[in-house]
Design a protein around this nucleic acid. Structure first.
Length: 639
DNA sequence: GTCAGATCAAATCT
DNA sequence: CAGATTTGATCTGA
């Protein structure tokens, strides 16, 4: 597995081919319902305004309106639908770049862009992709986000290693730029109105440029993304998405209803310093309202503990129901738009974030009943592990002793004192240290403590090492960092979810039990439910994580020495930890990584769990416990 | 086609 | 540490 095999599923921007059942393009017709005047004069009487100010804007608005009425006559039905298949025909435009296909003759050279790529001008709404299409889009999204994140971390590590003094680059933007060069941006061939296939309400992102890469929002800084008038079919700009992150003082965010301020008129310090104009995104918003075109809403929040100290959440589709010109707090004129959330969508990611935050500080205020315990670990963990059940009387997790670390046979630790060798890094470990060399010369974690890629085994620094406890190679031995909750659900019985955002690669917890050797396990005749076999855990989904061969020429995936197959079972019949309640899934969001840190026996590594992707709070965690057939086969052997 | 200007970033400096 | 500064990338419209 040294170099990228070009024949293996190349990362190609999914083409909109007949697999999409129904896709509609936008004929740009006004909403059927009668429209109020585009701009209403509602300046607060307390604020003095220039006398002709609002009337001037009304005149402008009326001029636009009549001009549009003329143009619209020739645009009853603008369509690129294929009359035969009913599907969208990919536009074959020679100015468009050819997407990178893995069939290139020289796979080691990554395609460079021949010239600046323009955004598509084809306005499209993708409505019914079907379950299989959705799964495919979701998978492409996952892969693109994996590359974005892995490459970003890769660049940060490079910067640190090569120690370019002073200011470092902007990894987030550099990554986006590189991925653009490799044609890895999604949905560049369409300008999508409505939801982006593969992106679900509640998805979280950490960088504005990540939003660009996945196609949610095409502006690196601007809050309103829109198809420009010069490119649209009738010369009018059309807004497609907005970001609400508190950049304008006149915004009023009430959740399902947002009063959104148009852009422009701010000085370099972000203060409103002049009147806004009816152009660009502002006009686009007004036009989208006129045509009844929905906009995507992404909310941005400050979030400590995230890689960028910010989080962007996709909150779904909103309708623009009103727009007017107003006088803002600064005394200057601003455009305002009333956005109302379209009903029938999943709960907003931003409200779930808020809920999770409240649950950490004042849980009873939002969930007065249902809590069985505020810490089933009895303060054995760094953070409390809640136990919550609002659907029945089951309190089962209370009846087990909470074990924080897997209990191994004591003989392992006796051996350790003889042959143990640790590193001498008294001021923290670096790439040259002994423990780093045990890991193949590089640490498994980035500077935020996230797993970079999976490997057969990680050697953390241990008791024999001189390095301080906050050493970056001691991630899992520091215990829980994120608040977890064991909860009861109708679908999966007991489950586990996090109250914190879990960044991809974040350490969650150890999978804990009492370790039994094969002999011990064979002697005990046990119910299969209480014996867990770590060797069966599957992490196939994570295998490609960290593979950058599609973006970096001459990238070689590091190879690691194999370890002997692990051959122990864990008894969880009396003592267990929170991990025991994680549900099974063949499409899990949690992966298993074996780690050694307090003894040296390769046969008995600790079983550590990490986030396989960015997991929003309150999302149920799931693990692939392995195939059922093997499970029963193993049970047969044991019995 | 080029290019300046705008933009609800992000990292670093002070 | 918050505000200012620097660096930076993309898009738009002229």
């Amino acid at each position: 597995m040294s170099s990228h095999d070009p024949s293996s599923t190349p990362m190609v921007i999914p083409k909109l081919e007949p697999t999409i059942e129904s896709t509609q393009t936008l004929p740009l017709q006004p909403r059927p319902d009668p429209q109020p005047p585009i701009f209403q004069n509602t300046p607060p009487s307390s604020v003095s305004v220039e006398p002709n100010f609002c009337s001037e804007f009304n005149t402008v608005a009326e001029t636009f309106r009549s001009a549009f009425a003329e143009r619209l006559k020739g645009h009853d039905d603008v369509t690129v639908l294929d009359s035969q298949t009913g599907a969208i025909v990919p536009v074959e435009d020679e100015t468009d770049p050819v997407p990178y296909s893995g069939n290139d003759a020289s796979p080691s050279v990554v395609t460079r862009r021949p010239k600046p790529q323009q955004r598509s001008s084809e306005l499209v709404r993708i409505t019914d992709v079907g379950p299989e299409g959705e799964r495919q889009f979701r998978e492409d999204l996952r892969k693109v986000r994996m590359i974005y994140d892995s490459l970003r971390i890769f660049l940060i590590m490079e910067d640190r290693v090569h120690g370019i003094g002073g200011r470092r680059g902007r990894p987030d933007s550099k990554v986006a730029s590189m991925m653009k060069d490799c044609f890895l941006w999604l949905h560049r061939d369409k300008r999508i109105v409505g939801s982006i296939p593969g992106v679900q309400v509640g998805d979280i992102f950490f960088f504005r440029l990540e939003l660009c890469v996945v196609g949610l929002h095409g502006q690196t800084q601007a809050g309103i993304d829109f198809l420009t008038g010069s490119l649209s079919s009738n010369g009018e700009p059309i807004a497609t998405s907005v970001i609400v992150s508190g950049g304008y003082e006149d915004d009023d965010d009430q959740g399902d209803v947002i009063i959104y301020t148009g852009h422009g008129g701010q000085d370099k310090l972000g203060r409103q310093a002049e009147h806004q104009k009816l152009e660009g995104g502002n006009l686009g918003m007004e036009r989208s309202m006129y045509y009844g075109i929905e906009v995507r809403v992404i909310r941005g929040f400050k979030y400590e503990n995230s890689v960028s100290s910010k989080v962007y959440v996709y909150d779904g589709l909103f309708r623009i129901v009103d727009s007017w010109f107003d006088v803002g707090k600064s005394g200057f004129g601003v455009f305002k738009f009333r956005l109302e959330r379209i009903e029938g969508q999943p709960e907003m990611g931003s409200s779930i974030l808020k809920l999770a935050k409240t649950l950490k500080t004042n849980p009873m205020s939002v969930r007065p009943s249902g809590y069985i315990s505020f810490d089933i670990s009895n303060r054995k963990e760094n953070v409390p592990v809640y136990l919550y059940n609002d659907i029945d009387d089951d309190k089962e997790p209370l009846y087990y002793e909470y074990l924080v670390k897997t209990s191994f046979p004591p003989c392992l630790f006796i051996q350790q004192s003889n042959g143990a060798s640790g590193c001498n890094c008294t001021s923290g470990c670096s790439s040259g240290c002994l423990c780093a060399s045990k890991n193949g010369g590089e640490f498994a974690y980035d500077y935020n403590g996230n797993l970079i890629r999976q490997r057969p085994l990680i050697f953390e620094c241990g008791p024999a090492c001189q390095c301080p406890p906050n050493c970056r190679n001691r991630v899992t031995q520091k215990g829980l960092r994120n608040s977890l909750e064991v909860f009861r659900s109708v679908e999966t019985g007991w489950g586990v979810r996090s109250l914190d955002i879990l960044h991809a690669g974040a350490f969650i917890c150890e999978y804990v039990g009492v370790a039994l050797t094969r002999d011990q396990a064979n002697i005990l005749t046990m119910n299969g439910d209480t014996l867990v076999y770590p060797a069966r855990f599957s992490s196939a989904k994570w295998a490609a994580w960290g593979d950058l061969s599609e973006v970096l020429a001459d990238y070689e995936r590091p190879s690691y020495p194999e370890i002997p197959p692990i051959d122990f079972a864990m008894d969880v019949s009396k003592m267990r930890n929170v991990a025991c309640y994680i549900s099974h899934s063949t499409d899990p969001n949690v992966i298993v990584q074996l780690v050694l840190h307090d003894h040296n026996n390769l046969m008995f590594p600790r079983v550590m769990l990490f986030a396989a992707e960015n997991i929003p709070p309150m999302t149920e965690l799931s693990l692939d416990y392995g195939v059922a057939d093997e499970w029963s086969a193993k049970l047969a052997i044991c019995n």
